[in-house]
Design a protein around this nucleic acid. Structure first.
Length: 296
DNA sequence: TTTCAGGTTGAAC
DNA sequence: GTTCAACCTGAA
């Protein structure tokens, strides 16, 4: 695989954008800490910030931490190869997906490697919730507990550390708009104190999944999102309301949730997580288009 | 006024 | 082991 980026001081340049589209990456539901300002996309992760701007046929990423965001955007993984593998599986199963169209719409998706604490909290909040509210809650947590940080002309709040989060009671999270998820957050944050993250990385996907399911507010869907978007375990297939619709498209009818999940993992095995993202994004784009036509 | 939004939980079969 | 209603909240 040819390297798709160059580094110059605090700037990353994406030189090959055939498998990198910042809108696809941010809008496929894996992250809640970003915003758009004009044509720029500001991405916040943990203590760091990246300003992503498209310039002609490449991206310029100005960042407080180059090394962190090279890993965060998964820049050393060969997505062309992954897309081919997903394509092969879709074709050999005769799933009837318009693959060219799917990649035309969301072929620039990459699976982010996000920080553990922020991912766990973000996805506990995400349960039965919508993106705009999740983003507001995450922003509230940053603004009220995080350290004010400067990067060039930008001022932002870092994501707070575990100790700072552990001092908050349920009321704090209710004020953040987390609703009934607040109790889970307080419990899980307490449980996280003393957890050795390096140890978690060395666990098998199955063991790590079972372990993380012990945390409050972490069920089958949330745990798979944590496994995929934080630990890069691409042999999982998060099943949500959208995936249920997709499953019906692929297999003809819905089934019990864990049956659907297992069938999808059996089909896509090591590229399951990627397949989930491409299919998910495509389904959502199509759905939004249909809505707009209906409203017309 | 309902419904829905990228679900989890605990009680009741 | 499975099913199922309840759950904060606010935009559509």
């Amino acid at each position: 695989m040819k390297k798709i980026y160059k580094i110059d001081k605090n700037e990353i340049t994406i030189t090959d954008i055939s498998e990198f589209d910042i809108e696809h990456i941010l809008d496929c539901g894996q992250i809640f800490t970003y915003k758009r300002i004009g044509d720029d996309f500001i991405v916040y992760s943990d203590k760091d910030i990246a300003v992503v701007r498209k310039v002609d046929d490449f991206y310029k990423i100005n960042t407080s931490n180059v090394e962190y965001f090279v890993n965060f955007f998964d820049l050393d993984t060969d997505y062309a190869k992954i897309k081919n593998e997903v394509k092969t599986i879709l074709e050999s199963n005769k799933f009837g997906v318009n693959i060219d169209e799917m990649y035309r719409r969301g072929g620039g998706i990459r699976i982010l490697r996000q920080s553990f604490l922020e991912t766990v909290i973000g996805f506990i909040i995400s349960a039965n919730n919508n993106i705009s509210r999740i983003k507001k809650s995450m922003q509230y947590i940053r603004e009220n507990l995080g350290t004010k940080t400067k990067f060039g002309d930008f001022e932002y709040f870092a994501f707070p550390c575990l100790e700072s989060l552990a001092m908050q009671n349920e009321t704090f999270f209710q004020n953040a708009g987390c609703g009934y998820r607040s109790a889970s957050l307080v419990k899980t944050i307490k449980m996280l104190q003393g957890v050795d993250i390096d140890n978690l990385c060395s666990m098998s996907t199955q063991n790590l999944r079972e372990y993380l399911l012990n945390f409050a507010g972490v069920g089958p869907k949330v745990v798979d999102c944590i496994l995929l978007f934080c630990f890069s375990r691409t042999d999982v297939f998060p099943v949500d309301t959208w995936v249920k619709k997709i499953y019906k498209d692929l297999f003809g009818e819905e089934s019990k949730e864990n049956v659907m999940r297992q069938n999808l993992i059996n089909k896509f095995s090591g590229v399951a997580g990627y397949a989930q993202q491409y299919l998910f994004y495509f389904k959502r784009v199509q759905s939004f288009e249909k809505k707009n036509i209906d409203n017309f």
